[in-house]
Design a protein around this nucleic acid. Sequence first.
RNA 1: GGCCCCAUCGUCUAGUCAGGUCUAGGACAUCGGAUUUUCAUUCCGGUAACGGGGGUUCAAAUCCCCCUGGGGUCACCA
Length: 525
Amino acid sequence: MTVRTRFAPSPTGYMHIGGMRTALFNWLWARKNGGQFILRIDDTDQQRNQDEALQPILDAFRWLGLDWDEGPEVGGDFGPYYQSQRRNLHDAALQKLLESGAAYRDFEAPADVQAQREAADKQKSVYISSRVSLQLTPQEVASKVAAGDAHVVRLLVPRDRTIRIHDHVRGDVQWDASLMVDPVVARADGSPLYNFATVVDDAQLKITHVIRAEEHLSNTPIQVLLYEALGYSIPEFAHIPFVAAPGGGKKLSKRDIAKYRKSPAFQKLFQLGDDILSKIGIDPLSDSLSPVMVAYYREVGFLPAGVLNGLARLGWSLDDETENMSLQTVQENFSLDRIVKASAGLDADKLMSYQTHWMSLLPVDDKVTGCLPYLVKAGLVPSADDAALKDRLRKVIELAADRLRVFGEILSLSEFFVTAETLTYDEKDFQKRLVQSAEAVDLLRDVRRLLADQQTFAADLLHTAIEQMLETRQLKFGQLAPALRIAVTGKTKGADLFPTLELLGQAECLRRIDRAIGLAESQRT
RNA sequence: GGCCCCAUCGUCUAGUCAGGUCUAGGACAUCGGAUUUUCAUUCCGGUAACGGGGGUUCAAAUCCCCCUGGGGUCACCA
């Protein structure tokens, strides 16, 4: 039997990082077994603009390279793949349930049911369905239905049973059916409820493995009963732990983003993200984009490989030491048995370390392609389609080396894309290194002369020339470097100084030094 | 509260099913140190965990029981 797994998102307008992990595990299991991965859209809540709300989800899958064999935009033999379009199938299954007596029409008023629930609660006893509607004769039921009396359809839970499953993650789990309420499977308007529709859809889509978050574990006994009542074969289950917020142990949630912002575990990620997003015109405080969403990582400039690696290691491990894994490696080695039972907190620092690893392996041309859009979005360059610009960008990237961890970080190297007139300086360091140090400025003036005299403006020649000059004056490089660096790049930190000078070019270096000296002098008085 | 799930360094985890090789391994973070013109890398080293209590056993992180703690879920939501 070929393995068929599915992920069934609701079109919510964004892809949750935890949901993505669930989807990944489904995809992995299907691919590992040469089976099919299906995307079904659970869109029974029809208020919002569906297509618009679905796109971000599909985009997330495409970005990460997780393809689906059946589903929206690709079709398949078991469609429709939108739950809202499967209503006739649900209706037919409901009919079957009613005819076989596995379900019954319940005419009890919702308020009455509620009252019984509360009464049981007050007495600290377990509430189970009253089943008063079962007293009705078939004729009475028929006439009520004909009269249009409001009612729901409930599954008749066999109270003499224990429901058992063997979960691939949890092991044996069982429930006492005598403690269960008869679940509503169809509303008063006839529409199916989630537990019912899911079972019908999963069975008809021939899903063999239901891999989903553990919050669905308590839905499972109802679904098992439904599978049985409908005569479907029961799929295998794997209830994986949810992705938690760091530290807390609570489910990672879009609503708590303000809290995460204050959490030390998220500090560095927010710092990085805020800086990049604000430079490309996205409000980092807007709740349309946050680290609980997959899109956040794409916008900041993460690699799919980095995110995938982090997601795969959240609740799963290959062995006792392998950390950096490609999607292919994970796919080849994936197994349900090695999924960890306890919930795992999203570790932003570790995610960054995976990202750094994969970025370091990326060919420079790909880095150029990845960084270019950021320069355009930030308005640093007019157009991305410029051979000279690409060439320059390649050199900057090579110079920056491992300092570039995500594509968006190219924006913190803006000194290579601005002019002497628009260069900004780190205020504190400018004060300390130039304004408050007349000697440094004097030295800088001499260096400027030296640089101006160079016939060939190459890093190694510049290095030798400046070393020589410092030697004759009995000065150390450390006495010049910070001043020269801030004059030319606006910062005291950065890549190797001489290649930086070479890349900037003689004329530009001289202009920048002149401007820095001028500014320093004027501020000193 | 009922039902269900979970519990190893700060974090992600290996080890638990098949008890000894675990004075508990790796990674991230953190702290030192080395290299380096700054920064970043790289390298070396340190701190750091079996929630508690009972059993079983020659031997328990591993098996059993209880407790504690954390979480999920209890809809005519999905």
